[in-house]
Amino acid sequence: MNWITARRRHPLMGYAVVFFALVAIGTLWAVLAPNADRAEARTQEAGATQQDLAAGQALFEQSCSSCHGIDGQGRNGMPSLQGVGAAAVDFQVSTGRMPSMNPDVQMPRKPPVFTEEQIDQLAAYVSTSFGGGPEIPASVDPDEDYARGDIELGQRVFMSNCAQCHNFVGQGGALTGGRFAPELTESTPEQIYEALISGPGAMPVFDDETLTPEEKLGIINYIVTVRAEPDSGGLFNLGRLGPSSEGLVAWTVGIGLIVAAAMWITARQREND
């Protein structure tokens, strides 16, 4: 106590108090914030003993129908599932965006709640009950086949149709109204393909007539290849804009800090001693 008493009038004490208060609040939030998505994951896995459509229906009614409705029509502004198809379901659920306990402007990517088998059951139920939608053609398995895609063509198509939102190496970016184009660093080739044909959220659709499956494999090959490149962006990534831009930021911020420090030093200087 003596230690604190002696230093409580120190000029830096105010900053220290604010800093520790922020750390304490952040820690409390991380511990106490609801994390029901994961809790539900365990209960769902435990209950998934049935097969196929019946199991899918059970999953749907338990986890999806509260927002999307038993009939899949959507309610209270929640989207309808009529005609979205299995690919859209697989994309939304396998990326962990659905089911969401906290529907917001946009769901972030999370660890998936359901197992692959459950997702297949759910997708089968949604596409048979509420009408099918775009599907990955049977002749293509993106996870296996992406490497045969024409990477140069894929890059050109990516640059003219994807890079405006997702950044030129798939690092994502901001949209309007709090929405954002997510980064593509964790997406599997199959998820990218599903996103292209289903157009999740605000993302436009690129159906198989507009961009053929082979051209889509080229896009996927570009994304997978470019994200595996060693990142030469230095300490911070800055969307892989490279070390020069990072150097510029470091220079600007660093010089600013030095100027601030210089002003602070001179301002504190005593006179005549």
Partner: peptide
Amino acid sequence: LIEGTNQPILAAEFDSPGSIIT
């Protein structure tokens, strides 16, 4: 022509609402 693939577009095939292409 689609930029990159240089393919012309059939109006009847550009039919998925929400589609874009450059």
